[in-house]
């Protein structure tokens, strides 16, 4: 087999402090391109073509023009749903980051055995069917469910959770947690602990060493995880529709209603395009943020957000 490459990959050696950067990339030439063909074909047939068709429908159904978009721009229900979706996704993202960050940190300092246990606690729900987990939340969030019993025990009293935004947020945050824990943990593992020691030796209190050194260096992982959760939350369907209520509908449910009940493909297409645009704007924002100094020297941030798109 005649494989011609213009560059020879350097052998993998431990990083040498005075060597120049190793040539890690090679130009995509000749037969190598074939490696990408199956993936490209799959994306083309099952994603690009339907997406373009939906885009086409949004401009042509029921009649050609910008009617569907004009409706979105003027319809208050749509505004409410879009804002609610953005708000819910933001709350879920913040909740996930706040829970995942200390958890991931604990994983980096735990002994190997405890690290395995902590990782399993994150991954086992991750490997469980989304439906099973969501139905579990439906049970847990009942008015006399486990969550309410705990709340009663600590003296908060009964809170209505099922069918409310609070319930949906709680369930979604649990579903999304691994998507923050894993990238944050991966980034934290790459941080040299001696950097914190160095900061301490230079006179920084532990809180300052954390804020000035550890936090900025772990930021790319946080950005990656937060972006993943935000983007997935924006289009989340299963959990909001089972745990939430039609009155508290999110964008994906709204689109589903347009397709399944109103058979309004044009409006559904326009909403889907809107969702896509909102998502892309968010991603662009994160790209700009992670390109600032916090992410320099660590390509994970942009790499992960690129993957999430």
């Amino acid at each position: 087999m005649a494989v011609t490459t213009t560059e020879v990959q350097a052998p993998r050696t431990p990083p040498d402090p005075h060597a120049g950067p190793l040539p890690r990339t090679r130009r995509l030439t000749g037969p190598l391109v074939l490696l990408a063909v199956p993936a490209l074909l799959t994306v083309l047939i099952f994603f690009v073509v339907p997406a373009l068709r939906l885009l086409w429908l949004s401009f042509t159904t029921p009649e050609p023009g910008l009617g569907n978009y004009a409706a979105i721009a003027t319809d208050e229900v749509t505004h409410t749903v879009v804002l609610r979706t953005l708000g819910m996704a933001a709350v879920v993202t913040v909740a996930c980051v706040l829970v995942a960050y200390p958890y991931a940190y604990l994983m980096t300092i735990a002994t190997p055995r405890w690290r395995t246990v902590l990782l399993a606690i994150v991954l086992i729900p991750f490997w469980t069917s989304l439906m099973a987990r969501t139905f579990a939340w439906v049970v847990l969030l009942q008015d006399n469910g486990v969550v309410n019993q705990i709340l009663a025990a600590v003296g908060v009293g009964q809170v209505r959770l099922l069918g409310t935004g609070a319930g949906v947020t709680l369930a979604m945050a649990q579903v999304m947690l691994p998507f923050v824990v894993l990238p944050v943990y991966a980034t934290m593992r790459g941080i040299d602990r001696r950097l914190v020691a160095a900061a301490l030796s230079l006179g920084a209190r532990p809180s300052v060493a954390f804020a000035r050194v550890y936090l900025p260096l772990s930021f790319p992982g946080v950005a990656a995880g937060a972006t993943l959760v935000m983007v997935m939350s924006l289009g989340f369907y299963v959990t909001p529709s089972l745990v939430g209520s039609p009155q508290q509908s999110m964008l994906a449910q709204f689109i589903s209603v347009q397709v399944n009940q109103l058979v309004n493909f044009g409006a559904a297409g326009a909403l889907a395009v809107t969702l896509l645009v909102v998502t892309l704007v968010l991603l662009a924002g994160v790209q700009v943020l992670t390109r600032t100094r916090g992410a320099r020297g660590n390509g994970l941030g942009s790499g992960m957000t690129g993957g999430a798109a």
Binding site: R194, A197, A198, S201, G203, R212
Partner: peptide, 30 residues
């Protein structure tokens, strides 16, 4: 005493420079 109150300079084998700060910012840190 905790290390940040000992006022001793320390140089590490791995350099331990803050990768997100320039050389000047690293030196300005203490």
């Amino acid at each position: 005493l905790p290390p940040y109150r000992r006022n001793l300079g320390m140089v590490f084998q791995s350099y331990a420079l803050f990768p997100h700060m320039t050389a000047a910012e690293n030196i300005a840190f203490p």
